[in-house]
């Protein structure tokens, strides 16, 4: 619950920052617009809004003509650097049913630009400074059976890493060929799950408890 509250609080902050930044990024559309912005921004709030409105109209017109800023670039500017990059929609390959039978190749090397070009920015997960996604989280290791104990038995790891990182780390530290990891002595997470998400859902006293074993412990 607290995680949700923290996220929602920061989301609003981020939106504010994001909107300011995106205005800044729009100023880069052309020298003429930058000049207009610089001249009037100091004249008062009313003038600022007028400039913003003009910029927005200009952006809209550029989008309609398909001449807008590269969406990759604009999204990079409007998001904090800690954001987790997610899927681009501008490169998504659209397959209409029936196309397949007419196309001998199913793996085009480069997507069809006329179909895929879109001004839609890349979708990104919101990451705030207080959320577990952007920080390091604490993990407590517990051995099961005859496998050696890790010393120290706690460590911190970046929350955006996949769970497979833990597996690799344990194999390296313990110098074993196989290691089976479980959360809260219950289940083995999927190797591609983010550690931060697991921490948010299964933490005990702000620690993610991972048990490890040389053989299968919980089938």
């Amino acid at each position: 619950m607290s995680g949700l509250l923290i996220e929602s609080e920061n989301d609003s902050d981020e939106n504010t920052v994001s909107s300011k930044e995106s205005i800044a990024s729009r100023n880069k559309f052309g020298p003429k617009l930058t000049q207009v912005g610089n001249t009037h921004l100091y004249d008062g709030a009313h003038e600022v809004y007028k400039v913003q409105e003009k910029l927005e109209n200009y952006t809209r017109r550029l989008s309609q003509l398909g001449l807008g800023l590269d969406s990759e670039g604009s999204s990079e500017i409007s998001r904090p650097s800690s954001s987790i990059a997610l899927s681009p929609t501008q490169h998504s390959h659209t397959l209409n049913s029936g196309e397949i039978s007419h196309q001998p190749s199913i793996h085009p090397k480069s997507p069809n630009k006329s179909k895929t070009h879109s001004p839609t920015p890349r979708l990104r997960r919101s990451v705030s400074s207080k959320s577990p996604q952007s920080t390091k989280i604490q993990i407590k290791f517990q051995p099961i059976g005859s496998i050696p104990q890790l010393r120290p038995n706690t460590c911190k790891i970046s929350s955006h890493k996949p769970f497979s990182t833990i597996n690799v780390f344990l194999k390296k530290r313990l110098k074993v060929e196989n290691v089976f990891c479980y959360i809260n002595n219950s289940f083995a997470p999927s190797p591609n799950e983010r550690i931060g998400d697991l921490w948010a859902q299964f933490k005990v006293n702000d620690e993610l408890i991972i048990s490890y074993c040389a053989i299968v412990a919980f089938g």
């Binding site: 619950m1 995680g3 949700l4 509250l5 929602s8 997610l86 899927s87 681009p88 929609t89 490169h91 998504s92 390959h93 997507p111 979708l123 997960r125 996949p162 591609n192 799950e193 983010r194 998400d197 697991l198 948010a200 859902q201």
Partner: peptide, 24 residues
């Protein structure tokens, strides 16, 4: 899950949100 991504090597890791059915 986020849609298929041409820029990365593979599919993105899924996102597992904390979803409670109680209104804040």
């Amino acid at each position: 899950h986020l849609p298929y991504n041409n820029e990365t090597n593979n599919f993105e890791s899924p996102i597992q949100p904390v979803v409670k059915l109680i209104q804040n």
